[in-house]
Amino acid sequence: MTDKILEVKDLEVSFLTYAGEVKAIRGVTFDVKKGEAVAIVGESGSGKSVTSQSIMQLIPSPPGVYKNGEIIFDGQDLLNLNNSEMEKVRGSSIGMIFQDPMTSLNPTMTVGKQIAEGLIKHQGLNKSEAMERAVEMLRLVGIPNPEARVKQYPHEFSGGMRQRAMIAIALSCNPKLLIADEPTTALDVTIQAQIIDLMKDLQNKFGTSIIIITHDLGVVADLAQRVVVMYAGKIIEQGSLDDIFYNPQHPYTWGLLRSVPRLDSKGQRLESIEGTPPDLLDPPKGCPFYPRCDYAMEVCVNHFPEETKITDDHKVHCWLQHPDAPKVDVPIKIGGANNEAK
């Protein structure tokens, strides 16, 4: 129990729009252990970003509403905190970095001041102390000549440097948990690797737990110890990195793994999962994936499958796990290579 830094239980979040209630998250349960990096993967619209922003309570409200659930961080339920209590958690115990570093920094404030703000608020530093820390933070995240850089504005930074600055902001108060919402999606491939290396490095150095939201399985393999797969607002499979990459159980996870291009599968067409995710205004009653599933059964249409524990850590929601279900061959090789048969 004490080894868990974060437990999310039965979380349900909806957006009340003119068109109706969009059920973005429909009962999500997972946890993050101390010092662990957990990846949340899924397509756009699967609810992974909403999950991460819910933890920080950054969901704009209205239209967002927390329908149900608990978010227990470090022993307290964040959903029970009032605004000013939550402010003390944000940026201090939980840091967050976002997808697009080009727009995530205030264009009219120097980078140094943007780092210093959180330090002044949470650690009671005065301005000059905070600016000194800001220089240190920039040096820590690998920005050359930080003394000069703190006085510059975001537009004078390159994309990769801005993301480093974002990381500096997020880590400035030494948080216990870092949430990274697609931190590399908007960056060049070469820069992506640098940012992931930096995060790994800092995780080792400070023992920070990480939640990384991504759809890039390369990033997952590189950084995460555990993986949560989301689809249409639900977690459909979660397990250790090895569980998900070497023993995936859900057809959607298979699809995800098959859609990764591999150097050793020359001459084959890149696989994709046909179809689009369901409309969350009116989510399907049964398994949300069945319309796109090659193994769909009658039961899938109207009944959402219960959780099946493959191991203590590896859980999946799929009717194929039911004893009455027909046996199917996993259509991928160990490690995610495409099956010849396909």
């Binding site: 179809g275 689009t276 319309p291 796109r292 059964m297 249409v301």
Partner: peptide, 21 residues
């Protein structure tokens, strides 16, 4: 009401999933 018959495979028309809602 989960019965054995319900585990019959069904064919899903994937083009339907492509239809814009």
């Amino acid at each position: 009401e989960i019965t054995k018959e319900m585990f019959r495979r069904i064919e899903v028309d994937k083009s339907e999933a492509e239809v814009i809602a």
